[in-house]
């Protein structure tokens, strides 16, 4: 196995590590990094996790590869059962989904995400695809893992979303408690620059990749950056985690989420930056 690995692989491993063993976990469609992460978690540290596929609602499948679309029968391979649409969303509504993954074209400090539109509502500059099930599920799912591969662009982490699709810890309408949401909201955010937690319901930088410093994160973040007392370097993937990423996603569907400059970011298993 090639011990040199790239940012896309590391990010998928970081996302996988947010999943606890025994959790019932769901990824949305069009979310290859979250999808890879779930399969990696299931095959490494979380064998008792209940893995629900993002658009087929297949339970615990073992696909030979990940297709570039989420509603495909290849994602039923090895699944003992396929849930109904109704069953998945009812699980979420009654609080029995422990975790789901959300991303956004814009993400604010409270973990609100925008996957709907950039610009004015009547004539948006960019109409994004839309939120799928997010604006109900984000209220009731136990914990949310947020991710973006575009933090470095400087346009993704913003003070205010043009449109809030999925709710984080606080929206202009109030806090989760005030809005009566039973779910816990964003717990972790993994980006192409680092990792965040939400100790007071607001994103706080806790860890960095070895080729990024706090100033770079500050420069790419559109809101005032909160930083933990001791920012640590992320722990690189183990050999087993890395091997599993490559097994789960042999065609590299996860790479479609990244720009070419970020795909060139490479590391060694000791967590050092690899020279090309």
């Amino acid at each position: 196995m090639n011990p040199r690995f790239t940012l896309d692989e590391w990010m998928c491993v970081e996302l996988a590590r947010t999943i606890g063993d025994g959790e019932i976990v769901f990824h949305g469609f069009g979310s290859p990094c979250a999808q890879v992460a779930m399969h990696v978690a299931k095959r490494t540290h979380a064998p008792h996790m209940v893995l629900i596929e993002g658009a087929t609602y297949a339970l615990d499948p073992v696909p030979a590869f990940l297709p570039p679309t989420s509603n495909d029968w290849s994602l039923l391979t090895g699944a003992p059962h396929v849930l109904r649409f109704e069953e998945l969303f009812d699980l979420g509504a009654r609080g029995d989904l422990d975790r789901m993954f959300l991303s956004g074209g814009q993400i604010d400090p409270y973990g609100n995400t925008n996957v709907s539109m950039i610009g004015p509502r009547d004539r948006p500059k960019v109409k994004l695809g839309g939120g799928g099930g997010g604006c109900n599920l984000s209220a009731t799912v136990g914990a949310l893992t947020i991710w973006t591969t575009r933090h470095g662009s400087g346009r993704t982490l913003v003070q205010r979303c043009d449109f809030i699709t999925d709710m984080g810890h606080r929206t202009p309408a109030g806090s989760r408690t005030e809005l009566g949401f039973p779910g816990g909201g964003p717990e972790a955010m993994i980006t192409d620059l680092g990792a965040f937690d939400f100790p007071e319901g607001r994103a706080r930088l806790t860890r960095l990749y070895p080729d990024v410093d706090v100033e770079a994160v500050r420069g790419a973040t559109g809101f005032e950056l909160e930083v933990a007392d001791r920012v640590q370097t992320m722990t690189p993937p183990t050999e087993a985690e890395l091997r599993t990423v490559r097994e789960v996603d042999p065609t590299g569907v996860r790479r479609s989420e990244f720009g070419s400059a970020d795909l060139a970011r490479a590391y060694t298993l000791h967590g050092e930056v690899a020279v090309a």
Binding site: F29, T69, R123, V126, K127, E257
Partner: peptide, 24 residues
């Protein structure tokens, strides 16, 4: 009135939808 219209990671945004939305 859909929850999503697009082509996921495969081809991204739906081109006709995006344009029609932008033009109102």
């Amino acid at each position: 009135e859909q929850s999503y219209v697009g082509f996921e990671q495969d081809f991204g945004l739906a081109p006709a939808y995006r344009r029609a939305a932008g033009q109102g």
